[in-house]
Design a protein around this nucleic acid. Structure first.
Lengths: 342, 342
DNA sequence: ATTAGCACTCATCTCGGCAGAGTGCTAACG
DNA sequence: CGTTAGCACTCTGCCGAGATGAGTGCTAAT
């Protein structure tokens, strides 16, 4: 569809525009060296590219900038894999050499590594609790009417929730229930926790304690830790250094989006299919990020999906660099977590 | 020091400027009605007030705006207590009528109530773990070398930390240690946790288990949950609607500050002395908030300090309203928490 | 002591002109 | 026929001049 020369020109324009953030003229492309044609020829090609929708002009007699379609073509066909600089590799290596202490810390730290190496905003979704197995359940009574339910997974994640003890359930009964739960459910993948809870355990439990059904329903909630708490951001203010966000109103609508976890989830959602995904501008289908691009990668152990790491930048973003960075980091993360989960 | 008339004029200027964000001229003060003097007279007074440092002029022949000293005088001597609107009272009442589930949720929710009612940014520091007492300690082994230490307080807060099991400590020994800890330390204020841990417990422990000192040092860390995790923000983007933050660079330095927990702590620190505190502009001693004011209130039970709630806005902020709001909310919060801790 | 009046200052707005960058078209060239 | 030089044209950004308007400071009258 595009001639070799057109591809070269489009590629050159995208590259230059990513660097300069300013419309690119025919002359500057010609002078670049790697395209051996005069400005006039390039102008003709540019005119064609614009007609086909790959370029656009802010106004007559400004240079051209890539359209969304242009970026898409660039990412799909023209991009050449970036290589990470020694410095970047080093930062990542150092990070992954650190001792893992708390899962949350790791995830938050991944986010900050990504944002500081890219100067964009990073969005990291931590591992789903559901993909782990149960290690231990504990109920700690606080007073006559309340207790804390604590669940420890095999990865060392701890979830807890305070709940009201159902009427007519004594301390002794409560203790029995916990013993049964631990005996029955240890090693169970949390994904199956709910089912097992209500099938196997419920029947056995009914012999010992009354009012246990309410209790079980509370326990269920502990496991259902909402996605919202698994999302970590870093470098949100990096966006403010991008020339496309000189305008406070734009900044506000973007930051408003980033501050609302539900919308963030919608933004990152549906990236489960593995590999590196690039969503450009309105492909994100959220008004506030219509001039942003989101690049995501997933990390998993074997074929068990764990979570997503992503970088959000202006559509004029360094696709090659970010893609290879995400690739690298997601693989490292998988390895480290694999060891940890192991 | 200031004549009655000067006080009236200063007060009028501050009030008007807070509303309009624009320099106030003598004419508009004169027309206000409550000061019965001609513009010329007011001009003379304004000139005096400027000489004394309460007002300043952006340029000759603009109106006057309050200086930092002017705001300070206003807050200290001129402010008249605001009353909350029925709507505001209602929002707060509804909020406090909700059932408390997790401490973190309450704190986060307080923050969002404050920011949405004021349209400024709110900063809330949750209750110190140290002010609570120990309810329960639990160690859950994950594998041969690692375990999770879990601490539950009488308020239902749960802290946890993964650590490496010291060499040469068997499971059985570990269990014994926990039993001793629970027997010895239940009901101990976390403030004394550390001392007791190393005095009373350590000696008893040395009879049962070797390598216990390392273990105790790990336990100590669980309690020392850093302040950083107790800070909650809400409405950071509200700042962007203020005309003084039309400039992206200003916004960036402010947001950078807000995103770094350590600096936030420094900002809110030293507000422990109870009552409502107002820190105006450079009284905050952090460059990025030199044109912001921070109003804080503390909440406590009896004379036990628990935490701080605060609102950060431009120096041109609605002091009266925010002060009465903070007063009201902090008292309600104390009551509710008192019932909860009770 | 207060106030009316007036000259003065300064920021902001608008407008025309000018320079610079870049295009589109045409005609010439190999 | 593809390529290129040349040129007219367009649009933005910038500068300076004038006009406007808000607000002051000073002086003199009440």
């Amino acid at each position: 569809m595009l001639s070799e020369r057109q591809r070269m020109i489009l590629s050159a324009i995208v590259d230059d525009y990513i660097r300069s953030a300013e419309p690119i003229g025919s002359r500057s492309i010609s002078k670049r060296g790697n395209v051996g044609f005069s400005p006039a020829t390039i102008r003709n090609e540019m005119s064609d590219l614009e007609e086909m929708g790959f370029l656009e002009q802010p106004h007559t007699s400004a240079g051209r900038i890539p359209s969304q379609k242009g970026y898409r073509y660039y990412v799909d066909h023209l991009i050449q894999h970036g290589t990470l600089t020694p410095h970047e590799l080093n930062v990542i290596k150092l990070f992954f050499a650190e001792k893992i202490d708390r899962m949350e810390q790791v995830i938050q730290h991944v986010a900050s590594v990504l944002s500081s190496l890219t100067n964009y905003t990073s969005i990291v979704v931590g591992p789903e609790v559901l993909s782990t197995t149960l290690k231990h359940i504990q109920l700690v009574p606080l007073n006559e009417s309340q207790a804390v339910a604590i669940i420890v997974t095999n990865t060392g994640q701890v979830e807890n929730k305070t709940f009201t003890i159902p009427e007519g359930l004594s301390m002794a009964e409560l203790e029995k229930v916990v013993n049964i739960l631990n005996a029955r459910l240890q090693g169970v993948p949390l994904l199956q926790f709910r089912t097992k809870l209500f099938s196997e355990v419920a029947s056995e439990l009914s012999r010992y304690a009354s009012g246990h059904d309410k209790l079980l329903r509370e326990l269920e909630k502990v496991v259902n830790k909402d996605e919202e708490n698994r999302i970590f951001l870093s470098g949100t203010t990096n966006m403010l250094t991008q020339p496309e966000f000189r305008d406070v109103d734009k900044v506000k609508s973007l930051l408003d989006l980033l501050e609302a976890p539900p919308s963030l989830i919608r933004l990152v959602a549906s990236s489960h299919q593995g590999g590196i995904q690039v969503r450009i501008g309105s492909e994100n289908s959220m008004e506030a990020v219509n001039d942003c691009s989101l690049i995501t990668a997933t990390y998993s152990i074997g074929d068990q999906f764990l979570g997503t790491i992503g970088v959000l930048g202006p559509t004029r973003m360094e696709y090659a660099k970010v893609m290879s960075l995400l690739d690298h980091v997601s693989k490292n993360l998988a390895v480290v977590l694999g060891r940890w989960y192991g």
